[in-house]
Amino acid sequence: MSEPKDIVKADDQSTWELAWQKGVTPWDAGEAQPSLKEVVESSGLDLPRSGRALIPGCGSGYDPIYLSLALGLDCLGLEIADTAIKRATDLINKAKETNPNLKASISNQDFFTFEPSENERFDLIYDHTFFCAIPPSWRKDWGKQMAKLVKPGGYLITIVYPLRPHTETGPPYWIIPEHYEELLSPNFEKVLDKVPAVSSPSHEGKEKILVWKRS
């Protein structure tokens, strides 16, 4: 059975589309993760209830829909795979039929070259399986871009997944909570650090919640 690392090449981002075409998408759980719902619904954090949210590598679009409905945010998902973009667009359009106040959209853009204007920065960003999908050599740029895109006082929700023994190959690439600490601590304060109370079956024992507030 193929895995993402068998298809996706770090030097050829078009191979993400190939993974979607072949259905090699183990990150696609069919809904927003319980760990995200825990942060939003029971963490006690004063998350924004208006403004804009960004979800890089949003896949099929479950998270933009969930965050818009749960927090009332105008959610933008970034994605580079055409198959995923179509799925997400279709899912959002269907959700809008029963939730006319839903504010969610998908843009075919690279997170690392995405440059909104100063007054278009985000109140919240959510990273679930985006960080583990990028080559480790890109992580410093990930940290710089997060600091650039999150408004002062805004939040960055990171789900550290998959926690597993060290490996040199990917995606998903090896990650531990300390990797986030090193990149984010200069510009963010960590405001939540916990193992989720409930995880989806594929995530049990393999994830941790870290939430950051932009200084």
Rank of each mutant, 00 (worst) to 15 (best):
G153Q: 03
L102G: 02
R121A: 08
P64L: 10
L69D: 07
T98I: 13
E41M: 14
R214I: 12
A32I: 12
F122A: 07
L45I: 03
R52L: 07
K140G: 13
A32Q: 11
N101C: 03
L183A: 06
K86Q: 13
K37I: 09
A70I: 08
F188K: 09
I85G: 01
K103I: 07
L210I: 12
P4D: 01
L36R: 08
P64W: 04
P100A: 05
G153F: 09
L192Q: 07
L192K: 07
A84T: 02
E204I: 15
D82A: 15
S202C: 01
S185P: 02
P171Q: 09
P177T: 05
S43M: 04
D63I: 12
L47W: 05
G154S: 11
L192W: 09
Y155P: 00
V150D: 10
N101G: 14
P152R: 12
S35W: 09
L78F: 01
H203M: 15
S117N: 12
L73C: 04
V160P: 06
T113F: 07
P64H: 09
V160Q: 10
K151T: 04
G30T: 04
M1A: 11
K22S: 11
L91V: 02
Y173Q: 07
G51E: 08
D12I: 04
P64R: 08
I159R: 11
V160W: 04
P136M: 09
R49Q: 13
D123W: 07
P172I: 12
Q33N: 12
S200P: 04
A197P: 00
Y173D: 06
W212M: 08
S35R: 11
W174K: 13
N99P: 01
T167S: 14
V198G: 00
R139D: 04
E79C: 04
W212F: 10
S68P: 04
K144D: 14
